[in-house]
Amino acid sequence: NARWTTEEQLLAVQAIRKYGRDFQAISDVIGNKSVVQVKNFFVNYRRRFNIDEVLQEWEAEHGK
């Protein structure tokens, strides 16, 4: 399903906090979204969920 429920959106943001840009890991956490759908989520929801800021926090924690 290409549509993202609110629950899936929140799950994705939590997974980004945990896995950074590991699209496969994020896809696995959500369970019903492909890697391509996760990559599209990054692009389409970047502003709404401040994904750049979430990634900066992840990179700071993981030394990337």
Results as ranks from 00 to 15, higher is better:
Val43Tyr: 06
Asp52Ser: 06
Arg3Asp: 15
Gln9Ile: 08
Glu7Phe: 06
Lys64Thr: 14
Asp28Gly: 10
Ile51Glu: 06
His62Cys: 10
Phe49Arg: 09
Thr5Ala: 03
Gln24Lys: 13
Ser34Val: 00
Arg48Pro: 09
Val29Met: 13
Asn44Thr: 15
Ala15Thr: 06
Arg21Thr: 14
Gly20Ser: 01
His62Lys: 10
Ala15Pro: 01
Asn32Ala: 06
Val38Arg: 01
Asn50Ser: 14
Arg17Gly: 06
Val43Phe: 07
Asn40Val: 04
Val43Asp: 13
Gln14Cys: 07
Val43Cys: 07
Val36His: 11
Ile26His: 01
Trp58Thr: 06
Val43Pro: 01
Gln24Cys: 01
Lys33Tyr: 03
Gly31Arg: 10
Asp28Trp: 09
Tyr19Ser: 02
Glu8Asn: 02
Leu55Arg: 03
Gln9Arg: 08
Tyr45Cys: 15
Arg47Lys: 15
Leu10Asn: 07
Gln37His: 06
Ala12Ser: 01
Gln24Phe: 08
Val54Phe: 05
Ala12Phe: 13
Asp28Glu: 14
Val43Arg: 12
Gln9Cys: 15
Val13Trp: 04
Asn32Glu: 06
Glu53Asn: 11
Lys64Asn: 09
Lys64Gly: 13
Phe42Ile: 11
His62Arg: 12
Val13Asp: 00
Val29Tyr: 15
Val36Ile: 11
Thr5Leu: 03
Ile16Glu: 02
Gln37Tyr: 00
Gly20Trp: 02
Lys64Asp: 07
Asp28Ala: 11
Gly20Leu: 03
Val29Gly: 01
Gln37Gly: 04
Glu61Gln: 08
Ile16Pro: 00
Phe41Lys: 01
Ile16Leu: 10
Ile26Asp: 12
Ile16Phe: 04
Lys64Ser: 11
Asn40Ala: 15
Phe49Asn: 00
Asn44Gly: 09
Trp58Ile: 08
Ala60Thr: 09
Phe41Trp: 08
Ile51Asp: 08
Leu11Val: 14
Leu11Tyr: 06
Thr6Phe: 09
Asn1Gly: 10
Ser34Ala: 08
Trp58Leu: 08
Ala15His: 06
Ile16Met: 07
Ile51Thr: 07
Val38Met: 01
Thr5Ile: 00
Ile26Asn: 00
Val13Gln: 08
Gly20Arg: 02
Lys64Met: 15
Val54Arg: 09
Leu10Lys: 11
Asn1Ser: 09
Trp4Tyr: 00
Ser27Ala: 13
